[in-house]
Amino acid sequence: MTEELKKHEEVDELDRDLSFFMADNAEEAPEEKVYVSKRFKDKKGKVIPFIMKAIPTERIEELEKECTKTEYHKGRKIGERVDQIRFYARIAVETTIYPDLKSKELRQSYKTEDPIEVAKRLLSIGGEYSTWIEEATRINGFDDDFEDIEEEAKN
């Protein structure tokens, strides 16, 4: 066996240490301040950021199921379809810690029980709403591509 091959096997053994992946070694997702609108300011005139945090995979799967609709043709089931627009909006609502779009106060203020409608009315300028959705999907890893992950791993 060549020296180079021996070194490669040693590295492979180190790389296969499963202790790195044990539950108590996983870092908790951090909260992030995200600026989605310039229109909401504090008493000093500073723009107020939204606070967002990634949600667990299990919750994303639940949201996907809740946003899945059965499709019928001539009374017969032909399949299922995920309402992508509502699905990503639900992810954004769940990801948003502050402001709490599910709060009774905001729902009453915007005269709707639906937190997605609260978000649409709160972020009434189209770019704000789409920025909010984009940030939520980014925070939950939907925009990560392999090259980005590989580059981060190298650093």
Rank of each mutant, 00 (worst) to 15 (best):
M22V: 08
D15R: 14
R86M: 15
F142E: 04
I97C: 03
E61M: 10
E71V: 14
A136C: 05
Y129M: 14
I55N: 05
A153E: 08
D148W: 07
K65D: 14
F21E: 11
Y72N: 12
R138G: 01
L101Y: 08
T137F: 00
A92Y: 08
M52R: 05
E94A: 15
D145T: 07
R90Y: 00
V82N: 09
M22E: 15
K41P: 03
P30E: 11
W132E: 08
S109H: 15
V118C: 11
E151D: 05
K38R: 12
K111H: 15
K77P: 03
T112P: 08
N140D: 09
K41Y: 01
I51C: 03
R138V: 02
K69E: 15
P115T: 08
E80P: 00
G45M: 06
E27T: 12
R121M: 07
G126P: 04
T95K: 05
E113H: 10
K53C: 07
I116M: 09
E147R: 10
E80A: 08
R39K: 14
R86H: 13
E117V: 12
T131K: 15
K77I: 13
K154R: 13
E150G: 00
Q108G: 13
G45E: 06
E66D: 14
G79V: 10
L101I: 09
L122I: 02
R16E: 13
D100F: 04
E61T: 07
